[in-house]
Deep mutational scan, measured.
Amino acid sequence: NKFNKEMRNAYWEILHLPNLNEEQKNAFIQSLYDDPSQSANLLAEAKKLNDAQA
């Protein structure tokens, strides 16, 4: 299933973003579980936030 793979990839990438705190990571990961079809968008948002907090 495409979403499972996308979701897993997004999950791991978000988990390893160095500039997000636990609360931010948890919020993105919760959103992933709530709507796996948004994995790519959530990952993009997480990366933007990560870069902004660098």
Rank of each mutant, 00 (worst) to 15 (best):
N1M: 02
N1R: 01
N1H: 14
K2T: 10
F3Y: 08
F3R: 00
F3S: 03
F3E: 06
F3V: 14
F3A: 03
F3K: 01
F3T: 04
N4I: 05
N4P: 05
N4F: 05
K5R: 03
K5H: 04
K5L: 02
K5D: 12
K5I: 04
E6F: 02
M7L: 08
M7Q: 15
M7R: 02
R8I: 12
R8S: 07
R8T: 10
N9Q: 13
N9V: 14
N9T: 15
N9K: 15
N9A: 15
A10Y: 02
A10M: 02
A10L: 02
A10F: 03
A10R: 02
A10G: 01
Y11I: 15
W12Q: 11
W12A: 04
W12N: 11
W12I: 07
W12G: 03
E13T: 15
E13R: 15
E13H: 13
E13Q: 12
I14E: 00
I14F: 05
I14D: 00
I14R: 00
L15F: 10
L15I: 15
L15N: 06
H16L: 09
H16T: 04
H16W: 10
H16S: 12
H16E: 06
L17V: 01
L17G: 00
L17E: 01
P18W: 11
P18S: 04
P18V: 07
P18D: 13
N19G: 09
N19E: 08
N19S: 06
L20D: 00
L20F: 03
L20G: 00
N21P: 05
N21T: 09
E22L: 14
E22T: 11
E22Y: 10
E22M: 15
E22S: 15
E22H: 14
E23V: 12
E23G: 08
E23T: 07
E23Q: 14
Q24P: 01
Q24V: 05
K25I: 04
K25S: 05
K25A: 13
K25F: 06
N26T: 15
N26K: 07
A27D: 13
A27S: 15
A27P: 04
A27N: 11
A27K: 12
F28R: 01
F28N: 01
I29T: 02
I29D: 00
I29P: 00
I29G: 15
Q30Y: 10
Q30T: 09
Q30D: 06
Q30I: 07
Q30S: 15
S31E: 05
S31Q: 09
S31F: 09
L32N: 01
L32K: 00
Y33Q: 04
Y33R: 04
Y33W: 09
D34Y: 07
D34I: 09
D34F: 12
D34A: 14
D34G: 07
D34K: 10
D35G: 03
D35F: 07
D35S: 09
D35T: 07
P36D: 02
P36I: 02
S37Y: 08
S37Q: 05
S37D: 06
S37V: 10
S37F: 09
Q38N: 13
Q38D: 10
Q38G: 07
Q38I: 10
S39A: 13
S39V: 01
S39F: 15
A40Q: 14
A40N: 11
N41S: 09
N41L: 06
N41P: 06
N41Q: 07
L42H: 07
L42G: 02
L43W: 02
A44Q: 13
A44I: 13
A44S: 11
A44D: 13
E45V: 12
E45R: 13
E45W: 11
A46F: 01
A46V: 03
A46N: 00
A46K: 00
K47D: 03
K47H: 04
K47M: 05
K47E: 09
K48P: 00
K48N: 11
K48T: 10
K48Q: 14
K48W: 07
L49S: 08
L49N: 06
L49Y: 10
L49K: 10
N50R: 03
N50Y: 01
N50P: 01
D51S: 12
D51G: 13
D51A: 10
D51L: 11
D51V: 08
D51Q: 13
A52Q: 14
A52E: 08
A52M: 12
A52N: 13
Q53N: 13
Q53H: 11
Q53V: 13
A54V: 10
A54K: 01
A54W: 11
